[in-house]
């Protein structure tokens, strides 16, 4: 029992750094002309999703917050707030969908995660910009979320065996 908890702790730390590194590397990707500014594949969502299915509530939220802190330190307060809002929203959604409901597949979870992430960011930009004009982005972001969500979902499915190996399979396997 004790070893499981220590394992969880180390795996949380490992995943935290993994998600931070992924979101950092992602910022080097070129922004494509047809995508709205700031639209990213959201690879670190993969980590959050896996954590939601296997680690638990506090661990998932911790990963999300750590990522937001990193965004805050490297890209400023607004970026930090955006990452926090998007991350917490998609984290909670994933905890519910993957941790409790357990009816969707990886792809659906990926799409939901991306949608929630973007929704959180949109809310923050609505508050900081103070103009409802930012919601004009919503339709585009939804389509982008579907595309990136399918990609991250597929990657998640492919990565699950490796993740399982990484964390050791002593407690419930997804």
């Amino acid at each position: 029992m004790k070893s499981v908890k220590i394992q969880k702790l180390t795996v949380t730390a490992l995943f935290t750094s993994l998600s931070v590194v992924l979101s950092f590397l992602e910022s080097f990707l070129p922004t494509f002309a047809f995508l709205p500014p700031g639209a990213k594949p959201g690879f670190s969502n993969i980590i959050v999703m896996f954590s939601a299915m296997s680690l638990g509530v506090p661990q998932t939220l911790f990963i999300v917050c750590a990522k937001a802190t990193f965004a805050f330190l490297t890209r400023g307060a607004v970026a930090g707030l955006m990452s926090l809002a998007g991350g917490v929203l998609s984290g909670i959604c994933m905890l519910f969908v993957l941790g409790k409901l357990k009816v969707t597949g990886c792809v659906g979870a990926g799409v939901l995660s991306a949608v929630c992430h973007n929704l959180g960011q949109l809310l923050v930009s609505f508050i900081t910009v103070g103009s409802s004009a930012v919601f004009g982005y919503a339709p585009v972001l939804l389509v982008v979320s579907v595309v990136t969500g399918v990609i991250t979902g597929a990657i998640l499915r492919a990565a699950i065996p490796y993740f399982n190996k990484l964390r050791g399979a002593e407690w419930g396997m997804p």
């Binding site: 917050c65 750590a66 802190t69 805050f72 930090g80 707030l81 926090l84």
Partner: peptide, 10 residues
């Protein structure tokens, strides 16, 4: 505390 910290900073 991380959430609070980010909010206070911003």
């Amino acid at each position: 505390s991380v959430i609070l910290g980010v909010f206070i900073f911003s």
